[in-house]
Nucleic acid binder design. Structure first.
Length: 419
RNA sequence: GGAGAGUUGCCGGAGCGGUUGAACGGGACGGUCUCGAAAACCGUUGUCCCUUUACGGGGACCCAGGGUUCGAAUCCCUGACUCUCCGCCA
């Protein structure tokens, strides 16, 4: 969330950010409630101060065996008054919090302003589209020919958007995950976590999925627990309500998890094969850093993700998202889009974002700086990377004229692992 | 699922309903001593909110939320979590 003090002093800036992000949040209402709640708090504090003071006197009287009935009588109504103010205060604080949680993060100053992805800015292009002396096929055809994927049976046992990877397909995907994990561990110095795939409301609120995206997530109503849409949620919330010692920063975690997304409202879009799924696997990087270095860390993470695609020898481009395409919690985001020669288009395989202190405030993740002051950390995360579209790009890039495909060199050790 | 025990500050661990934001011990940090270090000794060691130019002042917080009371870390209720035993089970 955004510091209410910042909102008070920069209301116009925050309002512009809301507009530019195509979000809705009533800042005027928020500020009005903020004012009311501070007045109530003041009243509460004063009443409490009186009660504390007289209670001290009562204690002193009793200690000296003096009569305190007058003082007790004087206080008998005060407790009720405090109770009333307190319940009003609780109500207004809840109201305040509810609105504050709907205020999106403010985009970083350099982020291009724009309505939608049309205003995104291409940062760089790596490599060139591979050339074929035959017409390259789309992944779903390659997968069918080689028995890698069974979408129909996935639909039978769950529903559409739940793929079954079959035989070599399952092995290929697992090899990809292993390769990416080890790469980040060994070359980029991340620490691996294996987290729960189901989290509670507090965690979902901490990273900013709630309250906005409740409808996009799978919910176990019996226990009020959500299936994670990304490892960002459990991993970032690892340090919820903690004050980290400076020596621990930066913290760099990598985790593989499945991701579950209802994709409400996107039916009929990118439905082919593995392009858009309700369940997919992803290797995710998360960092906790000092505020001063978070934008440098963002560039580093982007490279960390790019190296994966480079290792696979894939053609891709990096795009900086404009304000309108930026997610609710992000201040700045790069997307990496890999080239799919069969589909003849770029597919988003990674999103690398700096959330600055937005998530840290929500999840109350702080650190003690070199002067001993407690401050909010900056959090970042990036896919490194999501498997379905990576598998698409691999199959389409490494396909042969006869319909077969090659396993990229870097995957061989994982694919041909001997036991 | 059944029965029981617990949840206090960085950690361990006290805490009769009334100057207890919290004894005591450990750790950490600063200082004295030392050529340096250890030991010893002295000191420091909370988060958040409101107010103040500042010094300061006020409030909240001892798992969470309610209740009893003039007053709750301390009593009562509910919930969460942890541990032990039983049952079930990968």
């Amino acid at each position: 969330m955004i510091d209410i003090r910042f909102i008070r002093e920069n209301a116009d800036l925050v309002k512009a950010a809301i507009t530019n992000k195509n979000e809705k949040a009533d800042i005027d209402e928020l500020l009005m409630i903020d004012d009311k709640r501070r007045k109530l708090q003041f009243e509460f504090d004063n009443k409490k101060a009186l009660q504390n003071q007289v209670s001290g006197q009562i204690a002193a009287h009793k200690k000296n065996k003096e009569d305190a009935t007058a003082l007790i009588a004087q206080m008998s109504g005060v407790a009720d008054e405090i109770k009333v103010i307190n319940s009003e205060l609780t109500a207004i604080n809840n109201e305040f919090e509810a609105i504050l949680l709907t205020v999106p993060n403010v985009p970083f100053e350099s982020v291009p302003i724009g309505r939608d992805e049309a205003s995104n800015k291409e940062i760089r292009v790596h490599g060139t589209p591979p050339a074929f002396d035959f017409e390259p096929k789309e992944h779903i055809e390659i997968a069918t020919t080689n028995d890698l994927l069974d979408m129909a049976r996935g639909a039978k046992i769950t529903g559409s958007g739940f793929p079954v990877y079959t035989r070599q397909g399952a092995k290929l995907e697992r090899a990809v995950i292993n390769f990416m994990l080890e790469y980040h561990l060994q070359k980029h110095g991340y620490e691996e976590l294996g987290t729960p795939f189901i989290v509670n409301r507090k965690a979902m609120t901490g990273t900013g999925q709630l309250p906005k995206l409740e409808n996009d997530m799978y919910l176990c109503t019996e226990d009020d627990l959500f299936l994670i849409p990304t490892a960002e949620v459990p991993v970032t919330n690892m340090h919820m309500d903690e004050i980290l010692p400076l020596a621990q920063l930066p913290i760099k975690y990598v985790a593989y998890t499945p991701c579950f997304r209802r994709e409400a409202g996107s039916y009929g879009k990118d439905t082919k094969g593995l392009q858009r799924l309700h369940q997919f696997n992803k290797v995710e990087m998360v960092r906790f850093v000092e505020p001063e270095v978070s934008y440098a860390a963002l560039e580093e993470m982007l490279i960390d993700a790019e190296e994966i695609l480079q290792a696979f020898g894939l053609h891709y481009r990096v795009v900086e998202l404009c304000t309108g395409d930026l997610s609710f919690a992000a201040a700045k985001t790069y997307d990496i889009e890999v080239w799919a020669p069969g589909a003849k288009r770029y597919l988003e395989v990674s999103s690398v974002s700096n959330f600055v202190d937005f998530q840290a405030r929500r999840a109350n993740i702080r650190y003690r700086d070199s002067e001993g002051k407690v401050r909010f950390v900056h959090t970042l995360n990036g896919s490194g990377v999501a498997t379905p579209r990576l598998v698409i790009a691999i199959l389409e890039t490494y396909q042969n004229a006869d319909g077969s495909f090659r396993v990229p060199q870097v995957l061989r050790p994982w694919f041909d692992l001997k036991v």
